[in-house]
Design a protein around this nucleic acid. Structure first.
Length: 421
RNA sequence: GGAGGUGUCGCAUAGUGGCCUAGUGCGCCCGCCUGCUAAGCGGGUUUGGGGUGAUACCCCAUCGAGAGUUCGAAUCUCUCCACCUCCGCCA
């Protein structure tokens, strides 16, 4: 959630951010009203509570009849204190409910608008001209079928639609890609964490995945645990309720995890192959930084993602996501999208978000103030290094006329072969 | 799944209804003393919120979390969570 003090001091900034996202800017006034109500309730409670405490001391010191008289008075006061406490707590919760509905304040430069209003920042490489090469490009599923890399039928038999088996070289390609990504993260100073894939409700809420993404999340009712759709959840929860020491620079973590997503809202969309599935592998970067270092860290993550995509030797572009397409916690988001020949368009392979202090505030992750006393919120950032979906782009972009696949140089040591055939 | 135990400031510990405004030791910070270091001496040291724009000052909350009993709860009751010990189960 955003900082109530920022909202009090700069309500117009928050309103403008809400409008850029295409969301309700009147929420700001709802919060301001609820905040004023809470503060006045709190003041009433605190002053009466103060009186009650000093009365309590007199009661303790008094004897006999005097004590009985005081007791009669304080009894009434106790009921009133309890009532004021309750209404102050209610006012605080009303305020927080409204406050949580407001998305992070977008950063300067974020394009205004919705899903299609992104700005293309860079384009790399040129799509192959398969007609000129003398053959028609096959899609990743056809290629996989021919080479025995993927088994959708048996996936459906065992688990249902959008589940699959990767087989042989296909399985090796996936795990090789993941190990390549883990090594890249390690080289860039990210500490590897092997994380829980099941988390408690409080962690899921804290990471911000039970608001907008609630329908996407698998819930295990018998144990009241949630399957994570990304290791970001566990990585964000890792330092919850902690005061970090960032004097030596950002804390950087990476994790490989299996990701589980219900894909509830996407029936009929991307049903072919492994573009959109219920379960996949992902290597994620996550960083905790000082607020003033967040933009630089975001650029750093993006550059690591570009290095990864460059190593895959495929055409891709980088986009600056428009405000309306940002998740609630993100203040800015860059996606790298690879060219998918048979679809004639770019598909998202990585996504990196700067959440500034929004996620940290929910998770209560702070640092000591660099000057003076007290604490302040840290910034959190996340970014993708590789996912199973990358295989779609790798297979299609590196296919040969004979139906074989050239493995990108960088992956060869990890996959163990130069060519899938 | 069953039985028992534990949870107090960064760490260790004291605290069984009002003298707790949570004490003490260690650590840490500031200062004094000292030719240097160590030792010694004095002071400070949870976090969040409100008054309030303010380092100062005042107030409220905070003893794993929540609810309750009471005029009054670290202390009593209930629920939950985490950890420890033992038993059972474990594709």
């Amino acid at each position: 959630m955003i900082d109530i003090r920022d909202l009090r001091e700069h309500p117009e900034t928050v309103r403008a951010s809400q409008r850029a996202r295409g969301e309700d800017d009147s929420l700001v006034d709802v919060v301001l009203e609820a905040d004023a109500a809470h503060r006045s309730q709190l003041a009433k409670f605190e002053s009466l509570r103060g009186q009650q405490k000093s009365f309590g001391k007199q009661v303790a010191a008094a004897q006999g009849e005097e004590k009985q008289a005081l007791l009669a008075q304080t009894k009434e006061m106790a009921a009133k204190v309890k009532e004021l406490d309750r209404s102050a707590a209610q006012a605080a919760s009303d305020r927080d409910v409204a406050l949580r509905k407001i998305g992070n304040v977008i950063l300067d430069g974020v394009p205004v608008g919705g899903e299609d209003d992104y700005v293309v920042l860079e384009e790399h490489g040129t799509p192959r001209d398969f007609t000129a090469e003398g053959f028609e490009a096959q899609d990743h599923l056809e290629l996989s079928d021919r080479l025995g890399l993927l088994d959708m039928k048996r996936g459906a038999k065992v688990s249902g639609s959008r589940f699959y088996f990767l087989k042989g070289a296909g399985a090796r390609l996936e795990s090789g890609l993941m190990r390549f990504a883990m090594d890249a993260a390690f080289k860039h100073g990210f500490e590897q964490l092997n994380v829980p894939n099941l988390v408690s409700e409080s962690t899921m809420v804290g990471a911000g995945f039970l608001d907008a993404h609630a329908d996407e999340v698998y819930h295990l009712a018998a144990d009241d645990l949630y399957l994570t759709g990304t290791s970001e959840v566990a990585l964000a929860g890792f330092h919850s309720d902690e005061i970090l020491d960032l004097s030596d620079g950002p804390k950087r973590y990476t994790a490989l995890s299996t990701c589980y997503r219900r894909e509830a809202g996407s029936h009929g969309k991307d049903t072919r192959g492994i573009i959109r599935v219920h379960q996949f592998q992902k290597v994620e970067m996550f960083a905790y930084t000082r607020v003033e270092d967040a933009v630089a860290e975001h650029d750093r993550m993006l550059s690591i993602e570009r290095e990864m995509l460059d190593a895959m030797e495929m055409p891709y572009r980088v986009i600056d996501t428009a405000a309306g397409d940002l998740g609630g916690p993100a203040a800015r988001k860059f996606d790298c999208e690879a060219w998918v020949p048979t679809q004639g368009r770019h598909r998202e392979l990585t996504s990196t978000s700067n959440c500034t202090t929004y996620q940290a505030r929910r998770l209560n992750t702070r640092e000591r103030n660099t000057e003076g006393s007290g604490t302040r919120m840290v910034a959190t950032l996340n970014g993708t290094l590789a996912t199973t979906r990358w295989m779609v782009a790798i297979l299609e972009n590196h296919q040969q006329a004979d139906g074989t696949i050239n493995v990108p140089d960088a992956l060869r040591p990890y996959v163990g072969v130069d060519k899938l055939s």
